[in-house]
Design a protein around this nucleic acid. Structure first.
Length: 270
DNA sequence: AAACAGGCCTAAA
DNA sequence: TTTAGGCCTGTT
């Protein structure tokens, strides 16, 4: 299998990118590389000195991974722009290397529905089972992987069909979301061209999708950088460092990135 | 054993 | 508008 170099001298830390909570299908290997399935394909990605190498051709990098890894934005300068105080300086230094992935919209929506009231290992397990049951086979290095099933496939299922996932009360939420996407009631692509308020309103209209899940979907797949997901870790971070209140709009379009630094810093240090 | 986990929904003030 | 309790399931 060919691999191609991703050319960048910018912030790019595989461990931080994949373990800052934004994605669920990349797994670290003993040799330091990561193996995962994204955008309908399996891939291995690794660092070799100052080079990043990924499965596939130059064309794959240009057509898929450039977008996915957000290569056209300069994270070093973005990182500087969120240093509004000593705490944010520390958090962004600590998280240097994080990038916000531009993931598949439907997969992100579904994954974060599953995430509610679950821990990461279980989220990953449920997503993996879903792919194994309803996704398509794909091969890499003689190993079999499964793509994330598309909305049309899931839309045809009933909540009971998701029983093998053991995702409990989230099953009907998943089916409802799949149908909305499949029928076009929820046009994620169109929402990515609107704004935070519009996208949030459309997403939270669906059952089982509240403020937090909507913000994650918006930030990690709709590319609206002002989204600012607040979960239990973020509540702790805000309570500890901004006891007098906090408004994410001070970060403007980079609020989401600021959130990632805060989240990662909080999670890795408690 | 009982409580809790990377929320959301409904009912009740 | 804010708050409490319940919810599937798995883990501690």
């Amino acid at each position: 299998m060919t691999e191609t170099q991703i050319k960048t001298r910018d912030d790019f830390d595989l461990k931080k990118i994949f373990e800052c909570g934004q994605c669920f299908r990349w797994n670290g290997c003993p040799d330091g590389s990561y193996l995962g399935v994204a955008m309908g394909r399996a891939a291995r990605i690794r660092r070799d000195g100052d080079r990043i190498l990924i499965t596939g051709t130059e064309r794959d990098v240009e057509e898929v991974w450039r977008q996915y890894f957000d290569l056209d934005r300069d994270y070093r300068s973005l990182r500087r722009s969120v240093c509004v105080d000593d705490y944010m300086k520390a958090a962004s230094d600590y998280g240097a290397g994080i990038r916000i992935l531009n993931q598949d919209r439907w997969e992100t929506l579904c994954s974060f529905i599953i995430s509610q009231c679950n821990n990461i290992p279980r989220i990953k397990k449920i997503v993996e089972t879903m792919c194994r049951c309803f996704g398509e086979e794909t091969y890499l290095e003689n190993e079999r992987f499964y793509t994330f099933p598309d909305a049309k496939t899931v839309a045809r299922l009933e909540p009971e069909d998701l029983a093998p996932l053991r995702c409990g009360y989230r099953a009907p939420y998943i089916i409802a979301a799949a149908r909305a996407v499949d029928e076009g009631t929820l046009d994620l692509e169109a929402l990515s061209r609107t704004d935070l308020a519009t996208a949030k309103k459309a997403l939270t209209a669906l059952p089982g999708i509240g403020e937090k899940v909507a913000n994650c979907v918006i930030l990690f797949s709709l590319r609206l950088g002002s989204a600012f997901p607040v979960d239990v870790w973020m509540k702790k971070a805000i309570a500890e460092h901004y006891p007098d209140g906090f408004d994410s709009s001070i970060f403007g379009e980079n609020a989401g990135l600021a959130q990632q630094y805060m989240f990662y810093y909080q999670r890795e240090n408690s």
